[in-house]
Nucleic acid binder design. Sequence first.
DNA 1: GTCGATGTAGAAAGCGCTTACTTGCCCAGG
DNA 2: CCTGGGCAAGTAAGCGCTTTCTACATCGAC
Lengths: 348, 348
Amino acid sequence: MSVTLADVAARAGVSAATVSRVLNGNYPVAGSTRSRVLRAVDELEYVVNGPASALAAASSDLVGVLVNDIADPFFGIMASAVQSEIGPGPDGAGHKMAIVCNTGGLPERELTYLTLLQRQRAAGVVLTGGAVEDPGHAEALGARLRRLEAAGAQVVLCGRPPLPEPGPLTVTFDNRGGARRLTEHLLSLGHRRLGYLAGPAGRTTTRHRLEGHREALSAAGLAGDAERLTVQGAYDRAAGYDGALELLRRDPGLTAILAANDTVALGVCAALRDRGLRIPEDVSVTGFDDLPFAVDATPALTTVRLPLHDAAARAGRLVLGRETPPPGGVTTFPTELMARQSTAAPGR
Amino acid sequence: MSVTLADVAARAGVSAATVSRVLNGNYPVAGSTRSRVLRAVDELEYVVNGPASALAAASSDLVGVLVNDIADPFFGIMASAVQSEIGPGPDGAGHKMAIVCNTGGLPERELTYLTLLQRQRAAGVVLTGGAVEDPGHAEALGARLRRLEAAGAQVVLCGRPPLPEPGPLTVTFDNRGGARRLTEHLLSLGHRRLGYLAGPAGRTTTRHRLEGHREALSAAGLAGDAERLTVQGAYDRAAGYDGALELLRRDPGLTAILAANDTVALGVCAALRDRGLRIPEDVSVTGFDDLPFAVDATPALTTVRLPLHDAAARAGRLVLGRETPPPGGVTTFPTELMARQSTAAPGR
DNA sequence: GTCGATGTAGAAAGCGCTTACTTGCCCAGG
DNA sequence: CCTGGGCAAGTAAGCGCTTTCTACATCGAC
């Protein structure tokens, strides 16, 4: 039915072992034999049986990439970067493929997918996105990751904080510093009444950004207001819309709103506009992440750039063992303030 | 080292065959035996060896999803929809996983990935995005798809036109009708000098949208202008920016620009703004696709909504054989005009 | 009381590859 | 001229599952 190694071997007049060695290139084969085999492969249109080779070699060409939501460019960019590191390059070489798993941010789903990846005998797994801060889940997750590693998979966390030692390799962002600088930027413009839309509760990303924000406020002697003007919500547009209205209710005179991310910021802008408030004249708005659309918003969003592509590419290299990890296994990427037109000195 | 079927069988006091049958549930097993086996599975934390089972069963739990660029929400939305159909549901059941392949729109890469998917013995493949209209590539692609199908994979095209009979199952959009209605909308507002940014040459999506556009122009007796005011370009923001400037050069008095898609439209808006032109007072702008950010643009983009999620979900069901295809195998989804604030009667 | 269904479980033969081990060969050194 | 080392290729034993075929009860029916 389908062409096998043995067929190729027969055609080339060699043994199956030799064909395998030519194909895997990890054993000396004479030049003439090699070319005879390759010709036979070509003529028969032979395609390796991946499962068979994974079974025999006890490891597959598959790398799992866990994301909260692949439709969100935040994760799409990271998935794309991982894939371009592990997949076939411009030369067509490289056989690894990415299994993208949409967890929807749900802890159980995360565990389910990790088991499925172990079942596929994945060569590695990249976990992107912030982690859920539930002790129970953290433990279950840690156990699952250890089992994966025991099964021979390389685990890399990307964009989430390191797990307690000895945890998996980690590539993360300085969320806290970014949030601090963003807040300092607004403070330096003269803002004193800042609303903060914090993102979903119980996630590390949310907490780190909030900490950075409060750090800056405390340094400016505004710690008291922080509690009152912080609203939790999802990482989506609707949360931004509703959250902005809620903040205005709590303090109709606030002059700036920091959104949990760029998408939330869009919702904030829509709400402010519907309320007849101008940006930035009446209220300054900031995002976070610097996704491609941030620069196209009107006004262009002041935000914090995360080097999503670079970080995920590095995660991709680490998962393949193509890059040596730093001592401790944790790489933290800096974040950068992108001051644009959605922030200005308070005008009211 | 790792727990196998045999270990589970030993622990449950049954044969490996029985364990396999319990796990696959396609053969009668007595209730008491079944529960003994499941307990053993639990106690030993047994995880099926996917490659081994794929080898023995001659088909894996993997479904390939080819996209041009996973970082683009257009594809992200489709990938997400496919995944939610095939992957583990809310109940945790379902074992299929999606291998997302970024082709970058490159024909060779497309072929490379299809071979890789065949190598993985993928149960199915969903090809999204417009096809390249090169006869050579079309043939190579057709051959590759036939080989995949011969190898037992179910192939589904999603968002690209059907291949000549007997081609694979297809789910597609009425791009032409959408473009026609969009153009009619502008014509009915009174526009007579319309610029068109057509997207990359040699792709079916580009051609179909262009045809719809010209259809409407011809019906209005404006066929002559069409040629002159059409500019080809990429599907990105920069193409929109440059294209808009080029169109203004060709006809400084044009009153509307139709962009190849929403992302391109953002570039158009930026260029117009830089030129000091107001939207829609001076120039109306339209997008295509109705991606989430379209409604957040300022002004909100008039565009054509493609039911990306529904179409891709259907593709996901078709690829698993969970939905019976219509006779002929082609489903065309309608598109819908979303008239928003970026279009208005010409004001100059 | 015997016989064919019927329902449940086991035995064993692969699935197509990888890889440790073995073999055969050629050539340099004694 | 013989021998030992090194290279290239072959042999064959699995890898962990699925599935066909077989075995054996149990059971209702004649």
